[in-house]
Design a protein around this nucleic acid. Structure first.
Lengths: 197, 197, 197, 197
DNA sequence: TATGAATGAGAATTCATTCAT
DNA sequence: TATGAATGAATTCTCATTCAT
């Protein structure tokens, strides 16, 4: 990876943190530049606009999630175990790299106008969506999961996890995040599993 | 209700629509004034600031949801039926009054800074949260639902519904929203129900 | 004329002076606001953009020239006298209201990109062009002027006058502008007149 | 000519094209560097500033015109024929090397501030002005032209030609440029010629 | 109550120029 | 000579809020 590529990634990481903490519109380019100890003008040598940076950031953060899930999908374990593993992983992200999850929830989902051009459909998050699809398809094929439409299952899994991430951000939970892992997995698994499983 | 109160409500409804469609930061006071056919200055006779208006709007829209759920909670039906009814109702909202749901998802959840002072905890949405609590408590007491912590159940229900509302907004669903009602209810119910139920 | 209209005109006049003196790109909105003793933001309550202001300015200044020439055209005098009168008038403008002429020469003619949308063809200067056309047509019909294509005659008249206005701006002339009036008129008239005249 | 001199000329030619097409302020040093397939920094090894480059460009383009006119002046033909020849030559330039003419009209004449220091008076275009002077003086001495002040005659010739070049740039002419050559020459010649001629 | 002109701080973005390599 | 990352001041435009009427 070239020095320029490395710096681009570095900017993305800083932007990710700031965007997720303060929101897209409350994060200014000078904010990001300051975090980078870089001049404002130089930022534009790396990204043509704040929007472009936001689009790179969603791809970057989604890739992290996609890779984690892909690794889980590759394991020789039951779909139930995959659900439990992914849930745990997700909550650990919320705990340790909250910006990755929060960016998705608070920036990507809420600022459609920013991602309208260039991220149509699921274009910028497709790698992750694909892995969820694989998880669900394999579960259904093995008979572990009920047959159901993708979107209802998808919104169950991600809504459940995303909703909990929000609660965590609201600081209303009294226990450590990870302790909720089994309960949440259980909810998701029960919703998905076939009656014979 | 006084004439002033009526006008306030009218402003809130217009603001709700604009905020949910364009986001908090892309909706200007002149935008809202224009929708109201009212002068900018006069707006400030009703609300002290844009933020205050946003806070009134979250209370207003949450009340609609709370009242709907309260009515369902009062019915003499099983908890399962309540889940199915609420889900249907929610999806009908998404279809017919999208601003109520979208405001919650795209403005309230994503712009923490706006609601930081005055809506701490669940202050501005407490009526609705309370009704969900009642739904869950009664289900647990009757033995229909498993015992589980409130927050895991809450985030499952609302995440599931909210997630689907997002998908609907993304225009990726090919069927009419209402047709998904049973599948979604089924997922939620299965996640909640006790093994004996 | 409403107070707002009056103020708009006042802004146009100030902009005209600044644009013509310093050029379009070296005149900033704060410059114009300062000349108006008005805040920058308020400027935008009158004109949506710097470009829009520049377009209003060309119409405003062209109208002045058009009205002067129209008055001359209405007189019951020979075409030769009209040429002499118009030339004198034009040079008096250069001397007393240089911004009107300079704006045309230094802003309108040179910054095509600014006037590209909205002033296509001669849209923003058509009233003046029309009067020149009338002057030439009537001279040709009365037999005073040779028959010739409009554009060759037009560019001769306006090039001759505009060129001299430039020289005046360059401060290379040693006599008072008005003293050149007859020589210039003579040149223009000789170029136009028919051999029998 | 040294390799460095050659490259300088090459830069000037590219700058001439870009400046005349997009204007001085809309042409950036990176634009010119890109056209040269050269780095931005290296540009500054050849020209100390954008303004200096613009000054070299006016000298370069004026020299082209000056040399053309000088050659015509050296011919053993009547002044009338010289006028006709120069006009034709000028229009051919407009057609085939528009940048040379447009640079003069759209950059040099309109951005006084750029050429203020270093091109005072006619310093940067003096070679060309001198040749026009020679053309006029010889015509007057031979009795072909009327006696008249240099500046009135100069603005007639160059205004007439420049004005037509502008019209050509505006794309309002329906015939090929060269076809207007005789009419324009005729206008200029009639304006200048003595009554006995 | 109602109007809308006025304010001014702050946003994103641009670009001539420099300089370490 | 050549590169292109880095600087930072400057520019246009926006908008919540105020206030005289």
């Amino acid at each position: 990876m070239s020095a320029k590529e490395l710096k681009k990634n570095n900017i993305i990481e800083n932007a990710l943190k700031l965007f997720s903490k303060k929101g897209f519109y409350n994060t200014t380019i000078p904010d990001i530049a300051k975090a980078m100890k870089m001049s404002v003008g130089n930022m534009y040598n790396y990204f043509a606009s704040k929007e472009e940076l936001a689009k790179y950031a969603i791809k970057y953060s989604t890739n992290i999630l996609a890779n984690q899930l892909k690794e889980i999908n590759h394991k020789q374990i039951s779909s139930k175990e995959k659900i439990f593993l992914f849930t745990k992983q997700y909550l650990e992200n919320v705990k340790n790299s909250p910006e990755v999850i929060e960016y998705f929830l608070r920036v990507y989902l809420s600022n459609r106008e920013v991602f309208a051009q260039g991220c149509e459909g699921f274009l910028c998050v497709s790698e992750f969506v694909t892995e969820v699809m694989i998880l669900l398809d394999e579960g259904a094929q093995s008979g572990e999961f009920r047959e159901q439409e993708f979107f209802t299952a998808f919104s169950m899994i991600m809504g459940c996890l995303g909703g909990f991430a929000f609660l965590s951000g609201e600081k209303v939970l009294d226990k450590d995040l990870i302790e909720y892992s089994n309960s949440i997995s259980e909810n998701i698994y029960r919703a998905l599993k076939s009656d014979k499983a």
